[in-house]
């Protein structure tokens, strides 16, 4: 895995590009595209959260959609009960993070190995799927909000903070989503440049060495796991606003796999790679949904196998490596080249 901590500059450059896009897009694109984009942005936040916990924390979380879906459900339940979205957003983040903290306590303090962790998080996701599918009767409700089982629930739209009568229009939700994505991205970039982030990357590279230096790797892992669950919950809130409802299907195997594929394709150890891959693959899968010769699962399966076998680093690190190699003076000795390769990490 590549990716170290090389300062905030690339993060801020990409954030700036995102801001320009955020204010420019509504003038250029149609409303339908904007609504679709909102969903893609929500998924990009999910991809970002996995990029953080897997790419930088080295924690193989196959069930990031569990926190995403949990956030979406908590938001919907909260918004119905409170009659407004302000507190519901907070509740969503808290519920998701708290659940991650409890699950994380058991797996990290039990020192469960990474492959087991992947399987356990995936299992948790699938159990959520089958559990919520069974809650279709009127007796399953939280407060006044019915969980709705198989069919899901309609999510109340976002409103202005503490003003429950002024709902946001789809175009405004797009601004909110894009702003949330940019903020989360900058936050993750910043976090990875703090002491905490550096220790997390150190643990990913060599857990034993980090522990011998006196860092309790369990606490750091738990920390980054909980934070990434909170970010995934923000994605979930945006998602159910973009789509208008939330169904148990967010927890299914297909969506869990999709999240993994974004990060694999984009590249582990970068933040911008998975975000870009999400947008790319979102449009690919939408286009595939419109025709019937090629099955979506089939295409994604081939993409995943192809990348694992042939481009295991993902697109973004492969590009940065290639650029770095082109820039490097030809006559540099092999030793110098090796040093440079070690020094140049991709961190965007």
């Amino acid at each position: 895995m590549t990716g170290g901590n090389t300062g905030m500059r690339p993060v801020l450059i990409f954030a700036l590009i995102g801001t320009v896009f955020m204010f420019g897009a509504p003038y250029v694109l149609q409303l339908f595209t904007i609504i679709n984009l909102t969903t893609a942005i929500a998924l990009a936040v999910l991809a970002l959260s996995l990029a953080l916990v897997w790419g930088f924390g080295g924690i193989l979380c196959f069930g990031q959609v569990a926190f995403f879906g949990l956030g979406a459900y908590a938001y919907t339940m909260g918004a119905i009960n409170f009659g407004g979205s302000t507190w519901a957003i907070l509740v969503a983040i808290l519920v998701s993070s708290a659940f991650a903290a409890i699950l994380g306590y058991f797996v990290f303090f039990g020192r469960v190995s990474d492959v087991y962790l992947g399987v356990i998080t995936l299992t948790v996701t699938l159990i959520f799927f089958s559990l919520i599918r069974r809650t279709s009767g009127p007796e399953f409700k939280i407060g006044i909000a019915q969980i709705g089982g198989f069919n899901g629930v309609t999510s109340p739209p976002l409103n202005l903070p503490w003003d429950t009568s002024s709902f946001l229009f789809p175009e405004q939700v797009f601004y909110v989503a894009m702003a949330a994505l940019i903020l989360c991205y900058v936050f993750c970039g910043w976090l990875m440049n703090t002491h905490f982030g550096r220790v997390c990357v150190g643990i990913r590279e060599n857990e034993l060495r980090a522990e011998l230096l006196g860092y309790d790797s369990r606490l750091y892992k738990l920390g980054i796991f909980t934070i990434s669950a909170g970010i995934a919950a923000i994605g979930g809130v945006l998602f159910c606003n973009g789509v208008g409802r939330i169904t148990p299907d967010v927890f299914n195997l297909y969506n869990a796999a999709l999240t993994i594929i974004w990060v694999i394709v984009g590249g582990r150890g970068t933040l911008i790679g998975p975000i870009a891959a999400t947008f790319g693959l979102f449009y690919l899968t939408s286009a595939l949904g419109g025709q019937s010769t090629l099955n979506n699962n089939l295409v994604l399966g081939v993409i995943l196998i192809f990348f694992v076998l042939l481009v295991p680093k993902g697109v973004a690190p492969t590009i940065t490596d290639w650029v770095a190699r082109r820039r490097r003076p030809r006559k540099a000795s092999r030793r110098a080249r090796r040093t440079m390769r070690r020094d140049e990490g991709s961190n965007a």
Binding site: L253, Y254, A257, I260, N295, N296, N297, L298, V299, L300, G301, V302, I303, L304, I305, F306, V308
Partner: peptide, 9 residues
Amino acid sequence: WGLSLLLIG
């Protein structure tokens, strides 16, 4: 996992 999706598809 890729194989799983491939087979479903």
